[in-house]
Design a protein around this nucleic acid. Structure first.
Lengths: 147, 147
DNA sequence: TATTATTAAGTTGTACACAATCTAATTGTG
DNA sequence: CACAATTAGATTGTGTACAACTTAATAATA
């Protein structure tokens, strides 16, 4: 493998690449855990929003997760098909859908409660270290969104 | 929006969610820049591997990027269709594909040289800060892969 | 108030990720 | 050498992401 060397375009030097690999790796790590809940990673994230808020609109979910209806509509239909949520129309404004937990969706929360701790174990890192990484990521996200 | 409060399952408290959002945001930030090169983010990453090595197998790319042939085969076909790479069979071992840059693929590197600096500007953060975030992410990735 | 503009969600199409499976080539072992 | 096991890559199917567009409902304003 002949090398055309220049630091600037080396893939392993790129922060973006570290974050890209880490994001994929984290989602991979969650997969077997979430399989016991029959959820994908994004479905788990959306369920977390609902466990916190119980009723939200598609738009509100989109704002929290930075996702549009092109991603969310089919995902919410799948959660609906699993019986975890309901998707009723808002009577005041027929354009809006109210996304609510069903009894089953609420029940799933009990099973999910064990997930975060199990995941933290898998990282093999302490709370402070992880908090520091999170802080750096949140700062970078804020800076990116400001520019 | 009624709240069912428990710190543990709050989406904004999750490191995974910070990294997920950051990864999506970074790829979003790259999009307009890479559009001038007619590359997607992953295509750009793969081209970086080739600008570094000039000839690699599908397996080698997969190991560097932690991706399988299900992702790479169609992507490499697209890069081939754009005339940026060639995909010849290895004569020693007919199972293996040698992925090489074409003259056009090599030429694209000149345009790509401006990308990293432009992106760093968009982050609005200094080199040391960004290096610290990268270090934390790389540590976490290593820990995850060890467990 | 008629009509224009905006908004919420849905649809379509492209491109990842990745599991599961398949095919063909190569390697290992009796 | 035969044949089982392994390997490289391709294929199929599901589920994100997101751009571009459509539809239906609501808001704005001439």
């Amino acid at each position: 493998m002949t090398a055309i060397t220049n630091e600037c375009l080396k893939v392993d030097k790129q922060l973006c690449f570290s974050i890209y690999k880490l994001s994929n790796a984290i989602i991979r790590s969650y997969r077997p855990l979430l399989k016991t809940l029959d959820l994908t990673y994004l479905q788990y994230i959306v369920m977390m929003v609902l466990w916190e808020h119980e009723q939200v609109t598609v738009k509100e979910i989109g704002e929290k997760l930075t996702l549009d209806s092109g991603t969310l509509t089919p995902l919410l239909k799948r959660l609906d098909a699993k019986g975890l949520i309901s998707r009723t129309r808002c009577t005041n404004d027929e354009r809006v859908r109210n996304i609510c937990l069903t009894a089953e969706g609420l029940k799933l929360r009990e099973l999910a409660l064990t997930v975060p701790e199990k995941m933290q174990c898998q990282t093999g890192m302490g709370y402070e270290e992880l908090a520091a990484v999170k802080k750096g990521c949140d700062q970078l996200l804020t800076s990116l969104n400001e520019s």
